[in-house]
Amino acid sequence: MADTSTAGQTNATNPVAGPAPGRRSGRKLANTAMRLASPLAIILVWQLASMTGLLSPRILAGPSDIIATAGRLVASGELINGLIVSFLRVLAGFSIALILGILLALVSGLSRLGETIIDPPIQMLKAMPFLGLLPLFILWFGIGEAPKIGLVAFGTVFPIYLTLHGGIRGIDKKLIEAGQTLELGTFGIIRHIVIPGALPSLLVGVRYGLSVAWLSLVVGEQINASSGIGYIITYARDFLQTDVIVVCLLVYAIMGLLTDGLVRMIEAYALRWRPEVIA
């Protein structure tokens, strides 16, 4: 988030920055360095505590151990294989949620009857803490891939449905009228006006949904996984390998950031007609 706002500022100020761009970027660099100071200090203290034995590796491994472990896990292929499995679970669950969420939102956004039928149960289900459904999912789907993918899909479908539904409802009626006078027909209006008009909202839902998807995966993978990042974590827990656990958590975080960045790239392309993107 901090990245977005600073990038936005650069874009906005550059065209008018005339007088002293050098000084401005110099100040910005100093600012960044200041902001990095305290995290670096924390890591340094952490490292010192580990080296002096103040912080036991059974509680938390030191930064240098974590880096070494990360290198070892990557070199052995263990981490990459786990990552691929986890990523495929997110992909499967997220795809199901995306298709389902878009279908539900279209029906409920485009027709009053559809809204009456679809919206109340979704609002009710949304109120439930979906991670608490895991025991039920295990009873229904067993302990294989299905409950993990199901949990990801279930958690992700709400943000997608809600944002797209809101986006469709918020479309300017005047544009729809313009489409009617151009004789676009119902499907033409949906294709040319409703979907592109609701796309900005949908992309917000997709970004939010992705963060929910990774969160659901972390929880889902703790239960009886025999592969994936979650499995590596469970295994490491049994052997008190805190370094491995931290590496896996970092991988989750990085994957979350990467998928978010991907959607942001799609956003920048798909919404390039918006003035803030043009400017």
Binding site: A178, P196, W273, R274
Partner: peptide, 11 residues
């Protein structure tokens, strides 16, 4: 033609 142009901003 309306008072506002009513062009689709994404096209």
């Amino acid at each position: 033609v309306f008072q506002e142009p009513r062009l689709l901003p994404w096209k």
